[in-house]
Structure formats: C-alpha cells, structure tokens
C-alpha cells in the first residue's frame, strides 16, 4: 500500500508467486483462527504484508474453494454502516488443516534454510 516501493516490493515476481501457491490458503486460515472476518478485512490484513498478495481480487476464488472444501463457512451479517457483510469463519476441519500446517511449517522452513545456508554440511 506504500506507493513508493510498490514496484520492487509488490511480490509480483515469479519466485514469490510460486511460493505463495502452497502457503497462502494457510495464511488465510490462520487469519481466521481467533474470529470470523469479512472479505475486505481479511484482504486488507493479507495485503498489509506485501509479499502475500498482489491483486486482492484473486483471494475470492481461493475463499470460494476453501468454502467448498469445508475449511471455512460463510455468514451474512448486518453492518452498522453500509451493506451487509459476508463473514468467513473457520470450521473444525479448517482448524485441523491449520494445525497440520503449523506443525509442518517450521520443519519445512528449517530445511530450506539449511540448504540455503549450509548445503554441504561443511564449509565451502
């Protein structure tokens, strides 16, 4: 959202886009861990970490799939101001998927770090 570094920091490159594929949906699930959120809110939080989204609109197809797969539920709620908002809430199945990811992620991250920092296990 900072116009100045939108060019080089918008996560639009090939590598960030490939990395996002596997993890984005789990970030969405994680954002819903504590409370249901509506679309605009959810997207704003994702977009506040620039590497996570480039086009907010692309999240809606992802949310639609998460709903079809039973990871999230939606509910239309009246808003104090403006039109009603569709809230997304984590289902028990979504919570399980999130826990699974949370368990696997540190090992995965450590493994990647290991190869990036010390590929041969000794000094090069």
């Amino acid at each position: 959202m900072v116009p100045g570094d939108a060019k080089n920091d918008d996560g639009g490159g090939r590598v960030p886009s490939q990395l996002r594929k596997g993890v984005l949906e789990h970030c969405v699930l994680a954002l819903l861990r504590d409370e249901p959120k509506y679309g605009v809110e959810l997207l704003a939080e994702l977009a506040s970490v620039s590497v996570m989204t480039t086009s907010q609109g692309t999240i809606y197809p992802l949310l639609s799939r998460l709903r079809r797969e039973g990871f999230v539920d939606t509910e239309l709620r009246e808003s104090p101001s403006g039109p009603p908002r569709r809230y997304y809430a984590l289902t028990p199945l979504g919570r399980t998927a999130l826990a699974e990811f949370a368990g696997a992620w540190p090992r995965f991250r450590d493994a990647v770090d290991h190869f990036l920092n010390d590929p041969q296990g000794d000094t090069a």
């Binding site: 679309g39 997207l43 808003s79 908002r85």
Partner: peptide, 25 residues
C-alpha cells in the same frame, strides 16, 4: 463476491473507485 467487495468499500468518488479496482487487480 467482487460486487460485494466494492459495495462494502463504500468508495464515493472516481478516485476512490479507481483505487478499489486497482487493489482488486
């Protein structure tokens, strides 16, 4: 979903509408 997103954003003028659409991608 997109229509709802735009409605909820409550953009009033041209500039705000443009900004919402730019964010959507």
């Amino acid at each position: 979903d997109l229509r709802e997103h735009i409605e909820v954003s409550e953009a009033r003028d041209d500039e705000a509408v443009r900004a919402v659409l730019a964010e959507l991608g």
